[in-house]
Structure formats: C-alpha cells, structure tokens
Design a protein around this nucleic acid. Structure first.
Lengths: 252, 252
DNA sequence: GAGTGGTCTAGACCACCCT
DNA sequence: GGGTGGTCTAGACCACTCA
C-alpha cells in the first residue's frame, strides 16, 4: 500500500488577494513539495474534495491544479484509487530549445561567429519549408557555435525577409530564438528531423574534425502561433561533442 | 480580420445517450472539421457561450473540449479576441513511438531477427538505468530490424527480469512496446538521448554498411506510471536509411 | 464599451477500484 | 459498499483586446 501523507497534512494555503490564480498557487505548492521530497514519490495526495474544503476552494479549482501537474507527468490519477506522485525522474517533456540556451544552462560559455549574414533568393527547398515563393528574398545566416573555444556546430538558418532585424553583432551575442521572442514573435511549434551523416571536407575543417567523421544533423522548421513559418534551420553538430537529450511523456 | 465561420454555422451535435463524454464528442467533431477543411485555418471558432447554448451544453464542458484541442496545438486562444484554428501543419507532438510502429505506419514491412534473448547479470550501467542492483538478473534482447529486406537498425534492450514473458517468436512478430502494453504495463515517460558515431566492424557487417560509416544512436530508458524503469535500450540506426522525425509544441 | 477568454463556485451523478 | 476520480451544470466576476 502506498504511503499516505497523513502524518503531516502538508502545509497548503492560498492567498486570495494575490493576482496569481488560485489553481496555479496550489499547483506551485504541490510541485515544490514534490521537489523538496515533502510529498514522497508514490504517496497518495488525498482526495480532491477534502483538499478543496481544507483550502476553502471548490473542487474544480483543485482539479485544475492537479491536472496541470498530471500534464507535466508529475502525478498520476487512478479512478477509484486516488492521485499519486510519480516515482523518479521526470523533468521537462522536451522544449523547443536552442543550442545557445542549452549550452548556457550547462554552464558552458557559448560563443558564436557569424560566417554569413545576407539576403538571397529562396531555393525551391527553402521556399517550400518557409511557405514563400521560390526566388523571393530570404535571410540566410550561417554561424559557427563554440563552447570553451571548441567548435560545436555549424548553424545555417533561413528566415523570411523582413521578419526580424538580424544584426551581426546581436547574432554573435545571443541566440536566434531569443532574438525572435524579443521582437514579439510567439513560437508555437516546430517540425524536426534528426539524422547523421559523414562530414564533408569543408565541414571537417570548420569543426576541427576529420573528413568523413560522423556528424549529427538537425533540420527544423519553426512556426509561430499564426501558423506562419518563421525559421528553417539545417544544422550539423560534432557527434563527438554533442547529443540531444530529452524527456517525453506518453500521451494518455 | 480573420474569416468567421458564420457563413455555415458548422453542424455540431452531441449524443447524450452515448457513453463517450460530451466534451470528447465535441472535440472530435471540431478536430474532424479542421482536418477536412470545414474549419479554415485562422478562422475564429465563435465564442464559447454561444457554442454552449447552441449545443445545449454548459460553458465549462465546451471549454474542456476546446482546451484539449489547444493542448494538441490545433487551436490558439486569445483573450479578448477568440479561439482560432492554427494555420498549417501540426500533427503529433512526439509520441513514445517504437521503430516497429513507425515502419509499419510508413507502409514498410518491418521484420525482426532475434540475435540474442537471454538473462544476464546487470552491469553497472544497466543496473543504474533500470534501478536494480548491480549483478542482479536482467533480460537482454538483441534484435536486427529490417524493412523491405534491408537491415535498418540494431536494437539492444535490457529489461528487469520477470517483468514480461519474452518469447523469441513473439519478439520476431511484433514490437517490444506492443508486448509491454499487451501485458498490462502502462508506459508513462522516457528519457532519450540521440547522437551519432562511426560504425564498428561488427555493426557494419550486420547492417550492410562500411566500417566507419555514420550511425544514428539512440539510448532510451522507459518508465511506467509507477515510476519503475521497464526498459533500457541502446540502439543504432543506419544513418543512410533512417532519421527521427517529430513535431513539438512550445509549452505555453 | 462591447466582446472575448480566464477563473471560480457549489453543487450533482456516474464509473471504477478495492475489500 | 465505500471511496475515488471523471464528467457535467448554471451561473458569476474579472482581465484583456479592439474599435
């Protein structure tokens, strides 16, 4: 039988004067309790009706809080049983992350050298991916991303012309996604393809690998919340120095 | 201004005698309307209160239906504006899929040859991944997966002993995930790592590649809904014949 | 100011699980 | 049969957007 939390009823409370939604306050407190181990993995949360009356909330509000944690993979509901804290490691269910942010989070100091920053006519492939006319003008940005002075990846991005100001200075000091978000673009979804291939002589030279060395490839088309394609990237990473790590949840 | 759907108010209805939840019926109909183009990308859905009264439902029920579509990335809500159908391609936000299912869905006929199906003492790495004691018994399964007679991947899986019956016949006729689901295991989440490396001589021979050819590698630990690790896989794919494709949504 | 989604309430009945 | 989550109702007020 799973442990109950009844030993110490877990100090929960909500502040009705706060602008933060009540369900969100509760969800935050529960998540913090899980992270700090005050809600043990496998333990039952206690039924929703009691929880609601204890907090002076309605049951739908409590359900909304719990549901958000279930969606994160942090808890599991079982009809007739109760809501349990999931055992073990669940972190992020995969974000639309940028290499820049990944490196920075890992404590590595990302550096970027812009190899090319120009406007070109769209090739057939780029036009199809971005949903613009073939031959229309698109931005082309090529960057070499390094960490600790070691080259990590060659990044090649196409963007619709005029979507965004793309100064070389800014491109060298931050990531592309940050620039897009900062200029008011709401990222919504992306189609990604991850594969591998052997390095060409030119790629090998840029990345300090040998010709034929295995490279990790990633193609990505990113859409904003109106469904417009805002970026098409074709990137290659040194397989010896980089891999994609992610957590994913089974859709219920 | 976005198109309104008022030209043809979209035939929606719910069946209260059905065991299918009302919100789910509505969500299905809306999703079908989007897929069939009867709800144009970018069009507004019409406000929730009208929709509810038109269907004889309460607003929370209608909201629940719409919310499920927002979670799928099919629609976007804007306060003060309305709910819009997202433009363009959004399919699945990445499932915990198996190579077997992927190949079958793509119309390729997957075939499996079991190279090894044994019980072994857990190495330190396997023990750590599966959360069992080092040296305790674990299943080891090695398979060669082909499509159209061409080898595609070498699959190496470790499973806790006694979790599941693993007959070689069954392993050759279906996928591992199907076998797990069929025996009552509820998959919940997985940690994955995708990289690349050069093929060893042995791998090259098995996969009809040359030694040193680039291979796509995938490591995965899968957990059930109690948080128990149910599988640890170390797989290599021919980069010339396989890549990972997926769609992902930005968490709001 | 009118219209929209965001949040919240106080109930209700049902389906499922366990013993 | 007792307890749980799953679904549903008919309202309410607020925050935001846009004209």
């Amino acid at each position: 039988m799973p442990t109950q939390g009844t030993d110490q009823p877990l100090p929960l409370s909500v502040d009705r004067t706060s602008p933060v939604p009540l369900y969100f306050q509760l969800a935050q407190q529960l998540e913090a309790a899980v992270e700090q181990g005050r809600l043990a993995p496998g333990s039952l949360l206690g039924n929703e009706i009691d929880l609601a009356s204890r907090l002076g909330l309605s049951r739908p509000t409590v359900r909304q809080a719990i549901q958000s944690l279930v969606d994160k993979g942090l808890m599991v509901r079982r009809r007739g049983v109760g809501t349990q804290v999931v055992h073990s490691q669940v972190r992020r269910p995969l974000e639309l992350s940028s290499l820049y942010d990944d490196l920075e989070k890992a404590g590595q100091r990302p550096a970027t050298r812009v190899l090319r920053n120009s406007v070109e006519p769209a090739t057939a492939e780029v036009a199809a991916e971005l949903g613009v006319a073939e031959g229309s003008e698109v931005h082309l940005v090529e960057r070499l991303r390094s960490a600790h002075g070691e080259p990590m990846a060659l990044l090649r991005n196409h963007l619709p012309a005029g979507l965004l100001g793309l100064s070389t200075e800014e491109l060298e000091s931050t990531g592309l996604y940050r620039m897009m978000r900062a200029s008011g673009i709401t990222l919504h979804s992306a189609r990604q393809s991850v594969g591998a291939r052997a390095a060409t002589a030119e790629e090998a030279a840029r990345l300090a690998e040998s010709e034929g060395a295995p490279l990790l490839t990633m193609g990505r088309t990113t859409f904003d919340d109106t469904g417009r394609a805002v970026e098409f990237g074709s990137h290659v990473y040194r397989a010896s120095r980089y891999s994609f790590e992610f957590q994913l949840l089974v859709r219920p």
